[in-house]
Amino acid sequence: MGQRANYIFIENSQKTIHYSHWRANVITSDLYLGEKRFIDFVRSCKSVEVLLNEVWIEGCVIINIDKKTLYFWSLEFGTTSATDFYLNKLQQRWKGWSLNLLYNQMYDIEQILDIDYISQQEQFPLLVKTTEEIINDEISEFGNTIIIIKTGIKTHITQLGGIDASEVLNYGESVIDILLNKKEYPLPKEEEDKVFETLIFDVVNKEMIIDKSEFGLWEQCQNKWEGYNLTMGDFGYIGALKLANINIEQLVMSVEKIKIAFNDQVMRPEGFDPQKMAERLLQEDKDFKFSSDFFDSAKPPFTLIEKFIRTISKPFKRQNY
């Protein structure tokens, strides 16, 4: 239980690693506090010797003090059309810094730090779907995997409701013929929030794009896609379409929606108290066991002004743009 994050300082050419048990899901709002407050917060976090294993880590930040360069990713970020808006606003809080969103999570971290990380991680077998399951799959009203196949003659767009992109890739190249026979759908608008994942095939150039970074995906599927290249990363729905040179003009969210999404990204959450959560869990199960990290309470403190604003504006939603 937790939202585990690592923060890596590079200062005077030395690397130090810090750990938070509860802050991976609020990295974007923590970063928006600005250079000094974020760095002070990270220094207050527990110092550790090694990075979390891939199966546990949900966010990571590299703060290179020497070069004034920052890299970050978070599972909760959710790349959308609001991402550029957020990064532009964030730059104003980190003046003189180079800010970099990492689309390939720990794959990118490994390259930046020049360490052997990925090969040390355990890979879990991908699920295997049958031909019948793919043929009979029906779309969901809540969110679907968007499949786009560019054949050179036409672009076929379909959706899957109970099968995700990794399962499609794990089936192998013959899945394309199955998907070409499935019902076609128009591309949904971004603000409808009906896209779970996006997978794009260019069968002429043997290129594939998937809009999420999934550890072990290509390592396990590559031998089923001879001659194909996979571009993988947390690009988001619109980002994947742009990479595939698909017109997005009528699909992107409005400026108003972008500002609302941005406001949600930088809104500081109400204070979370692990001690109170522990008390509630013990009421349900008196034998519940906790790790020492469960009670990690390090977080950026509110300023007096922020406390005052929160007090007088509780009935209203703050605007941060």
Rank of each mutant, 00 (worst) to 15 (best):
P300C: 15
K15F: 04
Q91D: 15
L90P: 14
T231G: 04
K67G: 00
Q250P: 03
M267N: 10
N100W: 06
F235K: 12
P188F: 05
T69K: 13
E256L: 00
Y228W: 13
H21Q: 09
G233E: 14
S213L: 00
S213A: 01
F196G: 10
I118L: 12
Y19E: 08
N263K: 13
S44V: 03
I157E: 03
R4H: 10
L70H: 04
W225R: 11
D273N: 15
A82H: 06
E122F: 04
N205P: 00
L187Y: 03
M106A: 03
Y103P: 04
D66R: 10
W73K: 04
G161N: 05
V168G: 07
E58M: 06
N247R: 06
G271W: 00
G2A: 13
A244H: 14
Y117R: 11
Y185R: 05
I305Y: 05
N88M: 09
I209W: 13
K182H: 15
E214M: 12
Y19V: 06
Q220S: 09
I8G: 10
F9E: 03
Y107T: 15
A82V: 05
N205I: 02
R93P: 02
F288Y: 12
N136S: 12
T231R: 07
Q14P: 07
T80R: 12
K129H: 03
A165T: 06
N25G: 12
L75Y: 04
V26R: 09
L243H: 11
L101W: 06
D193Q: 14
K129N: 14
T83W: 08
G152A: 11
K276D: 07
E207D: 06
K314Y: 13
I209F: 10
V61I: 11
G236Q: 02
V42W: 11
I200Y: 01
R23T: 01
I157A: 03
M1D: 15
Q275D: 15
K189S: 03
R318W: 03
G271A: 00
G96I: 05
F308N: 00
L251V: 05
A5W: 15
I8K: 00
N223G: 03
V26W: 04
S81M: 11
K259L: 08
E122N: 07
I118C: 13
Y71Q: 00
Q319S: 14
N100R: 01
C221W: 08
Q105H: 07
N136A: 06
K289T: 05
N25Q: 01
H18R: 15
I115F: 02
S140G: 10
E249N: 14
T155D: 08
I312A: 05
D164T: 14
D202C: 06
H21P: 09
G161D: 06
E226P: 02
Y19S: 10
N144M: 11
E49S: 08
G34K: 07
K15H: 14
S13Y: 15
T155I: 09
I178Y: 09
L199G: 11
Y7A: 13
K95D: 15
N6G: 10
I163C: 11
S119E: 02
F77W: 07
L52W: 14
M106Y: 08
V128L: 07
I112N: 12
Q91S: 15
E249Q: 08
G162Y: 14
K36L: 08
K206M: 10
Y185G: 10
W22T: 02
K150L: 09
I112A: 09
T155W: 05
Y237E: 05
N181D: 14
T16F: 04
